[in-house]
């Protein structure tokens, strides 16, 4: 059928990144499930907006849909920062249990109530891998004094401080140059980004620490969804769920491929440190932030922790 509604789906990364995979999956499912009555247009590479401004743009209705890393949402919606806490999920299954189950549903509902934004798809649960130019990381002592690039996020800064490193908040755009000149000696990013940005040419050591997990959810504005019929809305929601599932599958495989690439062709020395001592250090950060934050944050953290024991 002829498209009745066009929805622009924006994201920050280039056409090879993990956002793009999620966006492509979503486009496929959405157009299929609405019989082509909704046309989803992919707008990569910050063409529509930067990720920092996107949440506000969605609230204002100046954007239809946008993929935003969850930690960029937390300044707008504090409970989101629960997912930023170091080692908040025991493993990938724990993470999926949280977002795909009741906790996730309640979270999405509350998010809409508090911010007016729809979360359509959580996307895959991914991890930031840690790279540095100095030495292989096997235990917390190896982190000592490393100058680490971090985004401007208190939790991430506090975590690296707890590990013994000295974190430096730096804009993403300056990271590559700063690594080369030695302004910073390491950092952490999604595995695929480390490959696509060719950081393996700059840093020799990769540690699969699993300290930070992240989602790249697709968010939609009320204004965009209000243009849809009930059927189309239902279909779009379903498209979000399906896109999330296939994104998780694709990315799980891809991340392992990329890690293998970084070790072989990338010539990085890959370590998989014992997590126990890191988790111990991280626990203190978790507790400290939980104490600082509001009730909504604490309740969510409680429920997430409970879900680990299942």
């Amino acid at each position: 059928a002829e498209p009745e509604v066009t929805l622009d789906l924006g994201y920050a990364s280039a056409e090879s990144g993990t956002y793009h995979v999620l966006a492509t999956e979503f486009e496929k499912h959405a157009e299929e499930l609405t019989n082509g009555t909704v046309d989803v247009k992919l707008r990569c590479c910050t063409q529509l907006s930067t990720e920092d401004e996107a949440f506000r743009g969605l609230q204002l209705g100046t954007l239809d849909m946008y993929i935003i890393t969850h930690s960029n949402v937390s300044p707008h919606y504090e409970p989101m920062d629960v997912f930023t806490l170091p080692y908040v999920f025991e493993d990938r299954e724990h993470g999926r249990r949280v977002v795909d189950g009741q906790i996730g549903d309640a979270f999405v509902e509350q998010l809409y109530e508090d911010t007016g934004i729809h979360l359509l798809a959580w996307g895959a649960l991914l991890q930031r891998d840690f790279y540095n130019t100095e030495r292989p990381i096997n235990e917390p002592a190896d982190m000592d004094g490393l100058k680490i690039r971090v985004p401007r996020n208190e939790v991430m800064i506090a975590t690296h401080e707890a590990f013994g490193a000295s974190p430096t908040p730096l804009a993403w755009s300056e990271t590559a140059a700063a690594l080369q000149t030695g302004t910073v000696q390491g950092g952490d990013n999604g595995t695929t980004l480390i490959k696509s940005q060719k950081f393996y040419e700059l840093a020799d050591h990769l540690a699969i620490l699993g300290h930070f997990s992240y989602f790249n959810p697709i968010f939609a504005s009320d204004r965009a969804l209000s243009q849809l019929s009930d059927e189309q809305r239902e279909a779009i929601m379903e498209a979000g769920r399906r896109a999330s599932e296939s994104h998780a599958e694709i990315m799980t495989q891809r991340v392992e491929e990329v890690r293998a690439f970084l070790g072989d062709e990338g010539e990085m020395q890959v370590t998989r440190p014992d997590r126990a001592p890191f988790i111990q250090l991280a626990q203190e950060v978790q507790d400290r932030f939980a104490a600082q934050k509001g009730e909504a944050f604490q309740n969510l953290l409680e429920r997430v922790r409970d879900a680990a024991d299942n």
Binding site: R56, Q59, H76
Partner: peptide
Amino acid sequence: IFLELAFSRPYITPGLG
């Protein structure tokens, strides 16, 4: 119009808080 939203749903700057 923008301020109405910005005051009712504040954004806390990550650095200055």
